[in-house]
């Protein structure tokens, strides 16, 4: 596992956060760990980028938050996807697919 955190484009971080919340609601550290897990440890999100992104996305109406008990009985703020968030995930996934195809074909070109 590379300890070097990859540079995250802002759009990429949004996409990863949305994706991390598809299955269930999570708190900050949970989201960060989930992203690490689904990207096989490539992306480690620091709180300095994670929390501003979470608050921004909440303001945009993609995420909703509520306070609850964590697995080791701490009061934590949990985030979940809203309807708008799911729509956003859809859009961003398509967009990402388009971009990655384009980059891949660009790299394949001789």
């Amino acid at each position: 596992m590379s300890p070097q955190p990859a540079n995250l484009l802002q759009g990429t971080l949004d996409l990863l956060i949305l994706k991390a919340l598809v299955s269930e609601q999570r708190h900050g550290l949970g989201i960060s760990r989930r992203i690490e897990q689904i990207t096989n440890g490539t992306f480690q999100v620091k709180p300095g980028s994670l929390f501003p992104a979470l608050h921004r996305m909440e303001e945009a109406g993609w995420l909703a938050s509520s306070w609850g008990e964590s697995e080791n009985n701490r009061r934590a703020k949990f985030y979940q996807l809203t309807k708008a968030g799911r729509r956003q995930l859809e859009t961003e996934q398509q967009e990402w697919g388009r971009i990655s195809l384009a980059i891949a074909s660009a790299l394949k070109a001789t």
Binding site: G28, N72, K77
Partner: peptide, 16 residues
């Protein structure tokens, strides 16, 4: 709330 949120994060990280 912001204070709580960040503190919990650090606490959880410490516990980990």
């Amino acid at each position: 709330e912001l204070d709580d949120e960040i503190r919990t994060y650090v606490d959880m990280l410490t516990a980990e």
